[in-house]
Amino acid sequence: MHDAERITLAHGNGGRRTRELIDEIFATRLGGPDLDTEVDAARLRLPGDDWAVTVDGFTVEPIEFPGGDIGALAVHGTVNDLSVSGAEPVHLSVSAFLEEGLEFEVLVRLVDSFARAAKEAGVTVVAGDTKVVPRGHGGGAYFTTTGLGRIVRGDLSAKSVRPGDVILVSGPVGDHGIAVMLARESFDLRGDVRSDCASVLPLCKTVWDVPGLRFLRDPTRGGIATVAHELSRAARATVRLREAEIPVRDPVRGVCEMLGYDPYYLACEGRVVAVVAPDEADVVLERWRNADGGADARLIGRVDEGPARVVLETSIGGSRILDELEDDPLPRIC
């Protein structure tokens, strides 16, 4: 296989090259007792709990960006969807769409990164697939991951949110969106913005047992504004966010001001928004601040009686409506 340094269409032909690709690149890095590359379906023994399943596709461009890459993202995205659903991630499957011409060196970095992220989250890869698409038909590499998780806290839902509840975020918003954009565009902006791409499992796990916890969500595409809209719709209430309390890093704010973006609509890939009964907000904040990735956790808003809409209370004491995202400023960010 090492006679070629790039993915060729032959790696997708199902023959020797495909087998070598799977064995030498994927199985060596992702393999374990649960992964059998010789069978068509994995056989799992699952205890009799409730299980959560989720699937997510990843198409970020560029595939490597400051703070992460599509390999780590493909694990974190799915692990995070399980985590905010109150489920402990257990197994993953992965489907890789590789573009003809992708360098092996890059692919190895992506799969290594995938393996690290999976190990860190304690998930095992139990099934996989590879396909090769002709040059020009894919953005280097796309991944789809399916995650299976054991439900620990099953009642988290936007529907349980009620007026009086407060809204918390685990850290600064917009890092991922801006990091990817800066990595992609030829702006003369040299920011040291890194993606927040990370597993939020530790942050979620530490608050699953808080009785007043109503809802968790990772604010990816559409950012915290989109999560706020989901909440206001489900609770038929006004969501108020306080601009002065929402953590945004200075370089992110600077780029947003220059390009006219609203940081509240930008994607995060390693943050959590929680809605919690007001008397238990301090418990969640304290646990987050003591957990990995939660040092900058803040109470950023509340749910009020009133029409279903999202109001931003600005730092000068004014108000404006945060509408649902209209134009997507940044396609293909995850």
Partner: peptide, 12 residues
Amino acid sequence: ERTLSMAGIRSV
């Protein structure tokens, strides 16, 4: 106009 709108100045 952008600052006026984004900071919610009219509302105060």
